[in-house]
Amino acid sequence: MIKKSVLCAAILIAPFMATPALASIDTYTAFLYGSNETGGGDTDGFGVATVLIDNAALTVSWSIMANNIELPLTGAHIHAAAAGVNGPVIVDFSGSLTGSRLYDADLASITPMNPTSFYVNLHNASFPAGAIRGQLQYVGTAMAPVPEPETYALMLGGLGAIGLLVRRRQAARG
């Protein structure tokens, strides 16, 4: 009887002992100004972009606030280049101020060690080469819990074992 009680207690406690993995989400910001554009941008325009790179889910998410520039946007991107230099597009935001998309190989080049080697810029009809622009700055890494399949399997196994014990007990009584 004591063995069954200990086994039952262990099965009940086991799912709560499993700890979920933590996802690493790197956060970057860019302060956007027309004066940062090479070749000239919208001098009245300004904004801020927040970029989240989730290294576990392999996604990039962004939220951009833009002021005093003409909308709609004709483009929004992250480019690879230092301040004052134009560079190739690394991440295409499809002209959207907010969104999320799957991670691609080029995104892996953005790391907390080199964020200023990349910039965000917004394009519109009046400024097709870029209305406002800003270099990325690393803000920090957030650790978010990610449920693991093993945790759920352990929990389901424990519930199944409890069910078997209850069934055996009822069969022994009946």
Score class of each variant (00 low, 15 high):
residue 129 A to T: 15
residue 47 G to P: 06
residue 99 G to C: 10
residue 63 S to C: 07
residue 133 R to W: 01
residue 152 Y to D: 07
residue 36 N to H: 10
residue 10 A to C: 15
residue 132 I to P: 08
residue 171 A to T: 06
residue 62 W to Y: 03
residue 62 W to D: 05
residue 87 G to S: 03
residue 26 D to P: 04
residue 59 T to C: 07
residue 148 E to R: 11
residue 50 T to L: 00
residue 7 L to Q: 06
residue 70 E to H: 10
residue 90 I to H: 03
residue 174 G to E: 04
residue 38 T to R: 03
residue 24 S to V: 07
residue 97 L to C: 13
residue 60 V to S: 02
residue 124 N to W: 14
residue 41 G to Y: 01
residue 143 M to W: 13
residue 12 L to T: 11
residue 100 S to D: 01
residue 25 I to N: 07
residue 78 I to M: 06
residue 33 Y to G: 02
residue 27 T to S: 10
residue 37 E to H: 02
residue 106 D to G: 07
residue 107 L to I: 15
residue 130 G to D: 12
residue 149 P to V: 15
residue 92 D to P: 05
residue 89 V to I: 11
residue 126 S to A: 15
residue 97 L to T: 15
residue 166 V to Y: 12
residue 44 D to Y: 10
residue 12 L to K: 06
residue 152 Y to N: 10
residue 153 A to H: 02
residue 155 M to I: 14
residue 169 R to G: 08
residue 84 G to T: 01
residue 13 I to H: 02
residue 174 G to T: 04
residue 133 R to F: 02
residue 41 G to L: 03
residue 30 A to L: 02
residue 122 L to V: 12
residue 35 S to M: 12
residue 73 L to F: 14
residue 55 N to R: 15
residue 42 D to C: 10
residue 69 I to K: 06
residue 123 H to K: 12
residue 91 V to R: 00
residue 53 I to R: 01
residue 67 N to E: 13
